[in-house]
């Protein structure tokens, strides 16, 4: 680019304009959500001039705080996401270790069954899954929200592929020293796979955080709802007053946006790893 020095690079200017125009379009709904949430109830939020001028107030936030269980929903979402993530990492790394490193009868069959699960949409199993949960009396419980999402075939696949790349010599040496398979998994494979595990963790957490259909079915009690289910329930009472629903949206988005800003690099790396496999 420095080779051809022109007085003014129009092409580059156009690229800049297009790029920042896209960024502007992507940000407008977000900025609108945030600004609207600070407007007093019943104010005009359709005229840009009035929208960006004071008065601003925290009233809508207080109202959300007083009339909804949004903190409870946030806590539920965080709890469900955290337990699901930890559970998935644990069970899939154990299973991946067995498939990658321990000889046993029927290994190919087991791996095939797990791979087949990659093709099954959870959405197609909700009817039998729900009737099972209902029979167990688990509607409106954490185990109903958490357990069905833990055995994730993708997790086994990703970790197995990584475990396959760990040199055999390392395992043999540890065996010579009298280490058990469990020790080898715990002391060698777990620490070595930190990057893959982090990628998988982010993937599972985001999925759990955004899960909508399943919590909609099993969390009917307001105290058991997660954010994606709770927020629309709360908002359905507001049709024309926008500041209160938007305040709920902001509260519901803050944890995820903070996580994004802190772990941006890891999240993007995680998507690349879990996506491209």
């Amino acid at each position: 680019m420095e080779k051809h020095r022109k007085p003014f690079n129009y092409k580059k200017l156009i690229v800049y304009i297009i790029s920042y125009f896209f960024a502007f379009i992507m940000l407008v709904p977000l900025v609108w959500m945030v600004v609207t949430s600070f407007k007093p109830e019943g104010s005009v939020v359709t005229v840009i001039g009035e929208l960006i001028q004071p008065p601003f107030t925290l009233d809508s936030y207080f109202k959300v705080n007083d009339t909804s269980e949004i903190w409870r929903w946030t806590a539920n979402s965080v709890f469900v996401g955290a337990v699901q993530t930890a559970g998935t990492l644990l069970v899939s790394s154990l299973a991946a270790f067995a498939i990658s490193r321990i000889p046993f009868k029927g290994k190919n069959f087991v791996f095939l069954i797990i791979l087949a699960g990659l093709m099954v949409p959870v959405e197609a199993t909700i009817v039998p899954l729900f009737s099972m949960i209902a029979d167990l009396g688990w509607v409106n419980t954490f185990q109903a929200l958490i357990l069905p999402g833990i055995a994730l075939p993708l997790g086994v696949l990703i970790l197995k592929q990584f475990y396959d790349s760990i040199p055999t010599e390392l395992v043999e040496a540890a065996k010579m020293d009298g280490a058990s398979l469990f020790t080898i998994w715990y002391k060698i494979f777990l620490p070595l796979s930190r990057t893959s595990m982090a990628a998988l963790a982010i993937f599972v957490f985001v999925q759990s955080w955004n899960n909508f259909l399943w919590p909609l079915l099993v969390a009917t009690d307001a105290s058991m709802m997660t954010l994606p289910v709770g927020i629309p329930t709360f908002q359905s009472a507001f049709a024309t007053d926008l500041s209160v629903p938007m305040a709920a949206n902001v509260i519901g988005s803050v944890p995820a946006l903070i996580i994004f800003l802190i772990f941006q690099k890891h999240i993007i790396q995680g998507i690349t790893m879990t996506g491209i496999k």
Binding site: A98, A124, P128
Partner: peptide, 24 residues
């Protein structure tokens, strides 16, 4: 030992994935 490692995953997998598919 292999099945001990596989057990937690397979239990949940059969329970919440394979069984509902067949039941469905």
């Amino acid at each position: 030992i292999a099945w001990a490692f596989l057990f937690p995953f397979m239990l949940l997998y059969v329970w919440f994935m394979l069984y509902p598919i067949i039941q469905g």
